[in-house]
């Protein structure tokens, strides 16, 4: 799991101002699920992503709360309206303090 926290973010190759753009983002993460021993859940600090924050040109535009019901190496897609050029950043926060970021530069062609 050396790659843990690697973020891949994909945007369409050409964006026009005012377009609604679909973004796909993926992060390498184990998303640990609850272990059971004798039918009882084992209590520990499970390692999974519990929050995703999307910022666009410095402004937070969306926040996702996620659980262990999201697959390993979680993938998310969402849409946003590209009104100005600037960075689109997706930040993943996990339960053990990990913070992983991916940024795509929004430019108009």
């Amino acid at each position: 799991m050396a790659e843990i926290g690697r973020v891949r973010i994909r945007i369409p190759s050409s964006i026009k101002q005012g377009d609604v753009v679909k973004v796909r983002v993926l992060v390498i993460h184990p998303m640990e699920i609850v272990q059971r021993r004798d039918g009882k859940p084992v209590d520990k600090n499970y390692h999974f992503i519990n929050r995703v924050v999307v910022t666009y040109v410095g402004k937070e535009i969306a926040q996702f709360e996620t659980t262990q019901s999201i697959s390993e190496n979680p993938f998310f897609s969402f849409a946003f309206k590209a009104m100005e050029a600037g960075p689109l950043t997706v930040t993943f926060l996990d339960t053990q303090g990990g913070k992983y970021e991916g940024t795509a530069d929004i430019k108009f062609s």
Partner: peptide, 16 residues
């Protein structure tokens, strides 16, 4: 999962 969106998104679309 719970997705909190804002009007700047232009479209209410999420996938996972």
């Amino acid at each position: 999962a719970k997705f909190t969106l804002s009007p700047t998104m232009g479209q209410a679309f999420v996938g996972t």
